[in-house]
Design a protein around this nucleic acid. Structure first.
Length: 269
DNA sequence: ATGCTAACCTGCGCGC
DNA sequence: TGCGCGCAGGTTAGCA
């Protein structure tokens, strides 16, 4: 599924059902996700959930014995269901909770992951991540310095998790449209002023998406199982060949690093 | 060092 | 109606 706003929305939706509950049992029906679900995940059984944390697109579930780390991949979702609710196709993992509810992981493409890190061991996937986009650590100065002499296109640059986390394909496309920058522009060629604009826009776009309940995604499902809002307010993503909503030019599509890039040839230079 | 490619999977929509 | 193709929200190992 998910871009950062969807993960944040999932985290907020799950919190009231998970925090302070005990994990009574864990049922793994399919352990072949992006990584094999480790046996050690069973160490969570009997543990109370202390808090949920989101870092990048990872959702961390903290307990006294260690931390579970979820990643939802391309098509994963987590939701709360009643304990009698039968599992459907692609419902790979259940956590039975002390409040009688089930935390259920669904993921058709199985690009997601569930890992366990015992207390005081390093959480490897988090070690080399760049700043969170919605914090003060993500600045234009930092982006500017990192990008000097880079020929890499700005789009793949901002999607690099060591530069800044949580900017996926949809929001990369939208942010570059709003900043008036062509996706293929070499990152190193952009002025501090233009990068300042880009940083501002990335923060605004992600914050707005979270505020709207997290989703611009067709098949997004909230923690309560309600479908997400249908794609609203996307200026370019998924609109190749259609008119620019600002100037009515026909939107172009190219590919960078095998990801589609839609842009307006007039508004983005 | 940098940056691109392929790969991991299933489902869906399109053209024929 | 069915089949094959290409594409889809992410990440990363490996290669040039």
């Amino acid at each position: 599924m998910p871009e950062l706003p969807e993960v944040e929305t999932t985290k907020r939706g799950l919190e009231p059902y998970l925090v302070q509950q005990r994990i009574e049992s864990i049922c793994v029906r399919q352990n072949k996700l992006r990584f094999l679900v480790p046996e050690e995940i069973q160490q969570l059984v009997g543990q109370p959930i202390l808090r949920l944390v989101r870092r990048a697109k990872y959702l961390l579930v903290e307990t006294p014995t260690g931390t579970a780390l979820w990643h939802l991949g391309m098509s994963g979702s987590l939701r709360i269901v009643e304990h009698h609710c039968a599992a459907n196709k692609h419902d790979h993992i259940d956590w039975l909770l002390s409040n009688g509810k089930i935390l259920r992981y669904h993921d058709p493409r199985r690009f997601g992951a569930l890992l366990f890190f015992p207390l005081n061991t390093p959480i490897q996937p988090l070690l080399h991540l760049g700043p969170e986009p919605l914090t003060a650590e993500f600045t234009a100065e930092q982006l500017w310095q990192r990008s000097r002499h880079k020929k890499q296109p700005i789009k793949t640059f901002i999607m690099d998790n060591s530069v800044v986390v949580g900017v996926g394909n949809i929001y990369a496309n939208e942010s570059l449209f709003l900043a008036g920058i062509r996706p293929q522009t070499a990152a190193g060629k952009l002025s501090l002023a233009r990068l300042t604009n880009l940083v501002t826009v990335i923060k605004e776009v992600l914050a707005a998406a979270i505020q709207q309940g997290g989703t611009t995604l067709r098949d997004f499902v909230s923690a309560e199982g309600k479908p997400g809002y249908f794609a609203q307010q996307l200026f370019v993503y998924g609109r190749a060949g259609q008119p620019c909503l600002r100037c009515h030019s026909t939107l172009c599509e190219i590919r960078l690093a095998q990801r589609s890039c839609v842009y307006c040839p007039k508004c983005q230079r």
